[in-house]
Design a protein around this nucleic acid. Structure first.
Lengths: 356, 356
DNA sequence: TTGTAAGCGTTATCAA
DNA sequence: TTGATAACGCTTACAA
């Protein structure tokens, strides 16, 4: 009983046993043997739009299923030079606020057969080290929601890895970005508040290194100046809940009383400020003091807060970022593009806005 | 002026030009040529603990830096069968709550030179499709915070990919997991409430498919039974803010009044319930009605809420999950281990707890 | 439509 | 310590 037809002697169990014994992975070779075709035929079956006959395709797919075969992404990426991997680089604290941005990015990329490698910077300064790891993984592109220097952006370009900045920009380089116009948002907020009669503005700022905080602060200051109103009292904050209460205390200390309105650098601080004003200081908000935020986070719309704020269209922005990056990766995306979104005013109930 | 010593004729600029022209990546070969050593010498320089002379190492590293060389992870993983990639599989809604779990996992893995590929399930049912993508990427392990069937867990085992379940478990299989004892937490909550005199319990449940919701519900029901108190009125919820208000309304409708306490399936619903009770129904909490949650999210400790809840040690749990998975991947981790954490009681101010 | 064979960029083995 | 050389598992001309 010799094997006159060796390929037929290989049953599913045979092949599986061999693989087990050699403790290796199931390869397209194994599938080819089982299906009685060449290895390249197997490869073609897994490439959309390749030329394979219906019969071959069926046999190969059956064999692949029998063996639990899945193409090896590493081997594929080695030859195609496409990893179908996208780096998402976020700075530590950011990831809290951006969790649904991450979900949306994940969904959008996954629809296009791409997946996210997450690079979570412990601190903004860890970028250099992180980039070294990014290069290793041969990502097809990157969404960057963290501080990137011009030189670092240049290195992406040199390596031909397209990037899309998320709510960040780069003064000295043309680079694709999706941003929300923070200065415009701040100006719009001031305009509404001023129109409703607010005159004495105070502001709880975000961390000094945050460009978003800077832009919001600048927008507030400039618009006030244009309107001929006094410059705002600005106190420091860190974008977290505790900063809101601390900021309020600082403002009261410095002013010896409350201003007409406290414009907070983000919603989280506004909520902290609001809670402290009402419960620690027994201040009537909005009766005696108006409090506003930026972002439009979920908690801002909770009944207890009903915060007056400017909402960033984060979902749309995430969608756009994914779309742009996919365009750049596949080469259909043209040149550097910058998409700017506007925040929308959310009336809320923490500011005296007068008859609407 | 002929090139009598060809290898010396290759300057950095020469090599870079060649690479540019052939539009390929910088390889260890290029570095080898520039450094005047063999390709395998270069490879060894990038392998920690390999045997290389100091002089060779220095020359190679200099050349690598000159050319911006980084080892190609795909090629490496092909031969080593280690991708240094870990899949983190989470179900859509979960990712909101778990954003700092994700941060912690990312930090822990990154310290060990591993990175996270994110798989965000749009719905719990998309697991099959997702797994197919997981196999392709040859991940070294996976943290699963989503519904996994016994068969699916078995497939991980067959492929020798270690997994750690996060706040999930599997009845019919031995599998590593990090969990918080939800039933115990629920029982502890009921015990405290009962001791303080609460008798009529109502509960806003989580979504039916959530094991966490089931365990919390069971804990509440069983402990009440043990204490000889009436079974709770249970209404449906979906773990979101709006469910809290809806649940409260349902309870009031069904009861024609308020119970002594509403035990909510999580903090988000408790906050919604609390807001609605105070602002829609003008109910004194905790004076006339106690409201409690589970989880210990950031908002629970905000002044406006100061929620009575059971806090899960998510940070420690994430740390443990990463540690366990790294152990399993590197083979030092022993067998299936299950680490169970206890939630801690947070007194808060939304329940009448009597003299502490 | 199919099979053959040459890479892709590493690591691992084994002499030297 | 070093350098040839053989994998790793795939895609892609090219020839049949």
């Amino acid at each position: 009983m010799t094997n006159s037809t060796p390929q037929l002697s290989h049953t599913i169990a045979d092949i599986k046993a061999i693989i087990q014994r050699e403790s290796r992975r199931v390869t397209s070779y194994d599938v080819a043997i089982l299906a009685g075709v060449s290895q390249s035929a197997v490869s073609r079956c897994f490439k959309p739009g390749a030329s394979v006959s219906k019969a071959t395709y069926a046999r190969v797919m059956q064999a692949a299923q029998d063996l639990d075969y899945t193409p090896n992404a590493a081997a594929r990426s080695l030859i195609t030079r496409r990893s179908n991997l996208v780096a998402v680089i976020v700075a530590g604290a950011v990831s809290q606020h951006y969790s649904d941005v991450l979900s949306e990015l994940s969904r959008q990329f996954s629809v296009r057969g791409m997946h996210i490698i997450l690079f979570n910077l412990p601190s903004e300064s860890a970028m250099e080290r992180t980039l070294a790891e990014v290069w290793q993984h041969q990502v097809d592109g990157a969404v960057v929601a963290a501080r990137l220097s011009g030189e670092q952006a240049a290195e992406f370009e040199r390596r031909r890895i397209p990037i899309v900045l998320f709510n960040r920009s780069l003064a000295d380089r043309a680079v694709s970005a999706v941003v929300c116009n923070q200065e415009e948002a701040a100006r719009a907020m001031v305009t509404r508040l001023a129109a409703a009669g607010h005159q004495r503005f105070a502001m709880i700022d975000g961390p000094g290194h945050s460009p978003i905080a800077q832009q919001r602060k600048r927008g507030v200051a400039r618009r006030l100046e244009e309107l001929g109103l006094p410059a705002p009292l600005v106190v420091a904050g860190a974008f977290d809940y505790a900063s809101g209460a601390r900021g309020l205390r600082d403002i009261i200390d410095r002013l010896g009383g409350v201003p007409d309105v406290i414009v907070c650098g983000n919603d989280l601080m506004a909520i902290g400020c609001l809670d402290s004003a009402r419960h620690d200081f027994n201040i009537d908000v909005p009766g005696r003091l108006s409090v506003t935020g930026f972002d439009g986070i979920a908690a801002a719309s909770w009944i207890s807060y009903n915060l007056t704020t400017m909402r960033q269209p984060l979902h749309s922005m995430a969608h756009a970022a994914a779309e742009m990056l996919v365009g750049l990766v596949s080469g259909t995306g043209g040149a550097h593009e910058r998409r700017t979104y506007s925040a929308t005013f959310v009336g809320g109930g923490t500011a005296r806005l007068g008859p609407a």
